[in-house]
Write a protein that binds this DNA or RNA. Sequence first.
DNA 1: CAGTGGATGCTCT
DNA 2: GAGCATCCACTGT
Length: 176
Amino acid sequence: MHEVARDLVGATLLVDGAGGVLVEVEAYAPDDPASHSYRGRTARNAAMFGPAGYAYVYRSYGIHHCLNLVCGPDGEGAAVLVRALEPTHGLETMRERRGVEEVKLLCSGPGRLCEALGVTLVHDGLALDEPPFKLLRREAEPEVVATTRVGITRAVDLPWRYAVRGSDYLSRPVPS
DNA sequence: CAGTGGATGCTCT
DNA sequence: GAGCATCCACTGT
């Protein structure tokens, strides 16, 4: 799963033609106390226990949405949280949805990214290789750094956050 | 800059 | 009834 997470950085993700190049993701495993799949399958996280190549979307703090790409074997419950991307497609659409001009603020965070791409619960469980999703293999291999994950209270020390070193579009800078 | 607190809805204890 | 894989506005240096 960690290889998948690392390889996803640099790939291009589009939803209805809006999106960009992934610059920050986090891995979540079934035996990981910070993972939604840790306590087993429920109605909310059902998609996470499905086969790889599907989306798992959930509501966060009652306000935002967060997008995961399921990457474990069918039934395992492993996924990669998409935290930030560098906007390259549909900039004007994303600006309207976000109500912000600055490109750096369009997709630099899981909640912001879902708002910019228009991702909501209706996308939960959809296949990533079918519309409205489009996932393109990366063209060049970026320099990826592994650091600790953001915004969690358990398993805080696991270095399962993968980010492009020095990118201007991260949700937060990587510690030096 | 840093730090704090409110919004808001659903899941699990 | 607590606790979130968050974001933003506001405060005080």
